[in-house]
Computed example of a mutant assay.
Amino acid sequence: MKKCFSVIICVVCILTLFACSKKVNPIVLPQSSDVVSVDVTVGENTVNCSDKTWIDEVISGLSDSKPTNRESVQDSPHVKDYMRVEIDSQTEKTTVFVYKDKGKFYVEQPYSGICIIDEETYNQLKEVS
């Protein structure tokens, strides 16, 4: 009887752990067809890009990001080096931050979520700045 009770307690604990580790929602970006330009800021330098092909590739790369279990709880990332990416669409302006931390590449939307992006998307943004 004690053995059965112990097994039930272990199973309940394991299920609770899995239920508590939720993934945050993916970042919300405008449709690439609505995007007019993208400003990439690194430090004090800002570069504006309005090349439609480049915009489509970057929006696609950012949209393909994979959610983590980390939430964004501040206006900017808590890392030393990051790129501020401002996406100007026909209806709104969206700001995300892109950075490298511990060998992984991230996109963070303030107060929304932190997602993993691929190195190619990170490099596309880095090359423009």
Rank of each mutant, 00 (worst) to 15 (best):
S33K: 14
D34H: 14
N48T: 11
S32D: 02
N45H: 12
V11G: 05
C115L: 06
V40W: 02
Q31G: 14
N48M: 09
N69G: 08
Q109V: 07
T46G: 06
Q109Y: 11
D75M: 01
V12A: 15
S21W: 08
S112I: 10
E92I: 09
I14W: 13
I59T: 00
V12E: 05
Y82F: 12
E108N: 09
I27Y: 07
S50E: 06
V96L: 14
Q31H: 15
K66L: 14
F105G: 07
V73T: 08
D101Y: 07
Y82N: 09
D101E: 14
S89K: 03
I114R: 09
Q124V: 02
D56P: 00
K100C: 01
A19I: 10
Q90W: 00
S76M: 12
T53L: 07
K23H: 05
L17G: 15
F105Y: 13
K52L: 06
E108M: 09
C13N: 02
K93D: 00
C49W: 02
K23V: 07
S60Q: 04
D56S: 09
K23S: 12
C115T: 11
E119F: 12
I59P: 00
Q124A: 03
C13E: 01
C20Q: 08
D39Y: 04
Y122F: 09
E119P: 04
K93P: 00
Y99K: 01
M83I: 03
H78M: 13
Q74V: 01
T68P: 00
I59H: 00
K93C: 10
V98A: 07
E120P: 01
D34Y: 14
N48S: 07
V28Q: 12
L62D: 04
V38W: 10
G113E: 04
N45C: 03
K80Y: 09
T68I: 03
T94Y: 03
I14S: 04
K80D: 15
S37N: 01
I87M: 09
E44H: 13
G113T: 06
A19D: 10
S76R: 10
S89Y: 14
N45Y: 09
K23C: 05
S37L: 11
E120M: 11
D75A: 15
V11N: 07
Y111R: 13
D75C: 13
H78D: 08
E119D: 06
V35I: 11
C20I: 13
A19G: 07
Y111E: 11
I87C: 06
E120Q: 11
I55E: 04
I117E: 01
R84Y: 01
I27N: 05
V98N: 07
K102I: 11
V36T: 15
D56N: 12
D34K: 14
R84Q: 05
K23P: 02
D39E: 14
G113H: 04
L62G: 00
N45T: 12
R70A: 06
M83S: 15
S112A: 15
D51Y: 04
T95P: 15
T121H: 10
D81G: 03
V24W: 09
D101I: 01
K93V: 09
T16A: 15
T46R: 10
S50W: 02
Y99S: 10
V40I: 10
S89T: 08
V42C: 02
E57A: 13
T95N: 08
V96M: 04
D75H: 03
D81Y: 02
N48C: 08
K104Q: 07
E57N: 06
G43Q: 08
L15A: 12
N123M: 05
V85H: 07
S63V: 04
E120R: 11
